[in-house]
Design a protein around this nucleic acid. Structure first.
Length: 482
RNA sequence: CGCGGGAUGGAGCAGCGGCAGCUCGCGUGGCUCAUAACCACGAGGUCCCAGGUUCGAGUCCUGGUCCCGCAACCA
């Protein structure tokens, strides 16, 4: 089976933060799980790089816009590497190929695009239109010192209104799955109200850093509209085999804040193109920091690198996958992070590996013998993953870790070892322990790839590898808050 | 009445009609293979408030109260 999974493309006007990391990791689990069961996978991510904001930021920094987006795009690429993300593609919306194909898509959408006047409040200082909904009523009064101007400009519009009913139908029939249910309800209620056509271009003088509208030198494509297209330009829409074989995407992973773009505008574009809509849209929640919303202005944004440099990649992946509720917002705090590291990774899993390995070495000279892989029922995990419940999936795996520790306590191999006549029984018990750990390692492959590989390395050959050090050492933790 | 989410033991969550459950933390005991790790047991809850439906309601309905998100950097 062909399996295409994407993340959203972060806008490069800011440094990567743990929210981006969360999204990358979740999509990575889906991709790795699909590969593990033998699917052909394309996992795509990238960066969204056009728009006036980048031009302004670059000006402030005294560099060219190109330099800015190159630099920031690289930062995201580095983060992907640090997080051990297994993406097959990395698309930049400034890639020549994307720009070329975006224009092809525009042309294919032209039957639903028309030119009209856009009238709205214009913020002179910020040089942008302010949507009615977020406009400050005070500033609508002409007497206000920073009053908006009522401006109008010519734009191209996309006939979104035409497709709301169809999208609603696709969601309701389950053909287009929106996960979790709260997000599905949210978008359904939005669709019931009906959506208005949206402006999808800007006059060239206000959007010098963008993709030109084909056949109209005075207009550039609105960034959002064009960025969405990355999901198919990356596959080589319209003529390449990857596109033919891998679209529709199996899962598109996004943040809840951009739900309407991906659950309404993007499907409308696809339908207009005569293409199927993605099978599943999964919207994760946002991360709060000690219960507060992360924001640059409050200054409580945690850089992924802070955590990664102290604990390494798997503890990072573990915390965000298990302790940020997959269907909700979640909180990050150093206390909670350290508790999860110490109790769950070091004490429960790491120690189970350690005590098993040590006993085999002590009592049997390192020889495990006939390792039979344990076979627990994995359907709850498969099901959890299908619903994008990464937290639940790890709960299930940890039930097995706990079960193993219980088993060891009940069997008391150290007691059995005292009686030479029971050597065979001891061998069976220890082999079973090793088997459980190998099964756990298998289950962990999509979540904690390095850890899974290390555990396999210890037990797989039937002889304990003495070279393997402690998993999740506690004494190396540098506990520094802030 | 803009839209949406939420209120359950000290903390974080699950349960969504039938004896209040999980993880952490706390207390007691056990064990000694192990990373001062592991295992067992226990204490701790008027399930936000007020009505209603029902033989029976955290769970459904109505009306409140209080938090949070979306609309400003931002997944």
């Amino acid at each position: 089976m062909n399996y295409f999974v994407t993340t959203s493309t972060p806008y490069v006007n800011g440094e990567p933060h743990i929210g981006h990391a969360l999204e990358f990791i979740m999509a990575d689990v889906l991709a790795r799980a699909a590969r593990q069961r033998g699917d052909n996978v394309i996992f795509s991510t990238g960066t969204d790089e056009h728009g006036t904001k980048n031009v302004q930021t670059a000006e402030k920094l005294g560099i060219t816009t190109q330099e800015l987006v190159d630099k920031m795009s690289l930062r995201f690429k580095e983060l992907l590497k640090e997080l051990n993300i297994s993406n097959d593609r990395f698309i930049r919306t400034t890639d020549a190929d994307h720009e070329k194909r975006a224009q092809l898509i525009w042309k294919a959408l032209e039957h639903d695009i028309y030119k009209a006047k856009y009238v709205g409040w214009y913020d002179v200082k910020e040089e942008e239109f302010v949507p009615e909904a977020k406009a400050d009523p005070e500033r609508m009064k002409p007497t206000h010192p920073q009053a908006y101007q009522k401006l109008e400009e010519e734009n191209y519009f996309f006939r979104l209104s035409k497709y709301t009913a169809k999208i609603k139908e696709l969601i309701e029939s389950g053909e287009f799955r929106v996960v979790p249910d709260t997000r599905r309800n949210e978008i359904l209620s939005l669709l019931s109200e009906g959506l208005e056509d949206i402006s999808v271009s800007r006059p060239k003088d206000k959007l010098e850093w963008g993709i030109p509208v084909p056949g109209d030198k005075t207009q550039g494509m609105y960034v959002w509209f064009e960025a969405l297209m990355n999901y198919i330009t990356v596959l080589g829409y319209p003529e390449q085999d990857d596109f033919k074989n891998f679209w529709p995407a199996q899962v598109q992973v996004i943040g809840k804040d951009i739900l309407r773009f991906h659950a309404a505008i993007w499907p409308a574009m696809l339908i207009s193109l005569g293409l199927p809509v993605e099978k599943t849209l999964y919207a994760h929640g946002h991360i709060t920091m000690d219960g507060k919303k992360m924001s640059k202005s409050i200054g409580n944004v945690v850089a992924p690198g802070e955590i990664l440099s102290k604990y390494g990649v798997d503890p990072f992946r573990y915390y965000f996958l298990r302790h940020i509720p997959s269907h909700n917002d979640g909180d990050f705090s150093w206390d909670a992070f350290e508790a999860s590291y110490n109790n769950e990774l070091a004490n429960e899993l790491g120690n189970a590996v350690q005590r098993t390995a040590v006993m085999v070495q002590k009592y049997q000279g390192g020889v495990i013998g006939n390792v039979v892989k344990a076979e627990h029922d994995s359907t709850p995990i498969v099901q959890a993953l299908d619903e994008c419940r990464f937290d639940r999936a790890l709960d299930e795996i940890w039930d097995q870790v706990r079960g193993l520790n219980q088993y060891i306590d009940e069997e008391k191999p150290w007691e059995i070892a005292k009686n030479k006549e029971e050597a065979e029984h001891l061998r069976d018990v220890l082999a079973y322990q090793a088997g459980c750990l190998l099964e756990i390692a298998d289950l962990l492959v999509p979540f904690l790839p390095d850890t899974a590989a290390k555990i396999k390395d210890v037990f797989e050959s039937g002889v304990i590898k003495p070279t393997v050090g402690t998993l999740f050492p506690k004494n190396e933790i540098v506990h520094t808050k802030e």
